[in-house]
């Protein structure tokens, strides 16, 4: 889940009696599964919450390029290098669709970027963990994209049209990435003892951070209740986390890898795996900026933005000159 702990604007879910006429009509459209489009009336809080959520998702795609980009120049075969390049390029493309979706709500990509760089907006906690070995690239595809898909598949049905359409495109690519990630880590798991060690080590380090991606339990959260009423959040964090664990454990078993949780076991009665919660203290620390890579990630993004200013300015100046020359010729 690339959007974590999105604080819903507003303080509580309004009852029908508390709603204005416009709000009631709006909620009726949502309840009837109609899509809300950019020019339609929408409550200010709905708009503000979506900007936060889509913006954070977009930022996550962009910052998420960094841990994977870290291995592009060291990919061990031409084929793996091409696959990884294509994947990281897809992430940038996802960022682009999502920034475009956010722009339909009245905020520019530059404003969102400034909010990311100033620390006002966040990105997913997962990208503050380092990719230390080649097998980590497999773990990112398998676990991180796998967790993201859990959230994004239901979001294809989200109430906001542009967001829903972006999700449909993104999900197609993400499921491909997940398969590629799994294939990469499978090659390691089935390889030499050193490769196998890499694969297990990657799972050890990425398991709990992947569980954190869904965010802390929100079953009692008012914010989540409002977002769910607006259909910009479809499932609770715990539901998605459980689904992820249930799906992933057999995949790890198939690889002969051990999930680093001694309490993990199938619960026949519930029809689900019981599992340990991640260390939520660590999660809040990462969110606050104290993850292993927070500083490096933001330094890299800031450097790209600052170093690129002359390029953006230059291309803009040229475009203006061309437009002026065209206008002069037409006059």
């Amino acid at each position: 889940m690339y959007a974590q702990m999105i604080k819903t604007a507003g303080t509580s879910v309004k009852s029908r009696e508390e709603m204005t006429e416009d709000e009631r009509k709006f909620q009726d459209r949502i309840d009837a599964d109609e899509k809300i489009e950019p020019k339609d009336w929408m409550p200010d809080d709905y708009r503000a919450t979506l900007i936060r959520q889509i913006g954070q998702h977009a930022h996550s795609e962009i910052v998420g390029q960094l841990p994977e980009g870290n291995w592009i120049t060291r990919a061990p075969t031409l084929q793996r290098k091409a696959i990884l390049l294509a994947k990281v390029q897809d992430e940038a493309g996802h960022g682009l669709y999502l920034y475009c979706a956010a722009e339909t709500l009245g905020i520019s990509r530059d404003e969102l970027t400034e909010d990311l760089l100033s620390g006002k907006m966040k990105y997913s906690s997962i990208f503050n963990y380092p990719t230390l070995t080649w097998a980590d690239i497999g773990a990112v595809g398998w676990l991180v994209d796998g967790a993201a898909i859990m959230n994004q598949v239901p979001l294809q049905r989200t109430s906001y049209g542009p967001y829903s359409r972006a999700m449909i495109r993104i999900c197609k690519e993400e499921s491909f990435h997940q398969r590629q990630g799994y294939d990469l880590i499978r090659a390691c798991a089935e390889g030499t003892p050193a490769q196998r060690k890499m694969a297990q080590d990657a799972l050890n380090r990425f398991w709990y951070p992947s569980l954190m991606m869904f965010g802390p339990s929100d079953k009692d959260s008012v914010h989540s209740a409002q977002s769910m009423a607006w259909k910009i959040k479809i499932n609770t964090n715990d539901e998605l986390r459980q689904k992820f664990v249930d799906q992933t454990v057999p995949q790890a078993e198939y690889l002969g890898l051990t999930v680093p949780d001694p309490d993990l076991k199938w619960n026949e009665e519930r029809g689900h795996y019981d599992f340990s919660q991640p260390d939520w203290k660590e999660f809040f620390n990462v969110i606050k900026g104290n993850g292993p890579c927070n500083v490096d990630r933001m330094t890299a993004r800031r450097k790209a933005w600052d170093d690129g200013k002359w390029v953006r300015d230059g291309l803009l100046a040229h475009a203006r000159k061309k437009a002026a020359a065209k206008a002069a010729a037409a006059a």
């Binding site: 940038a92 682009l96 990509r109 450097k303």
Partner: peptide, 16 residues
Amino acid sequence: EWCGHAPVLEEDIALA
């Protein structure tokens, strides 16, 4: 080597 570090998203995609 530019992947993730280009001056603007469209350029990042084009370089990749």
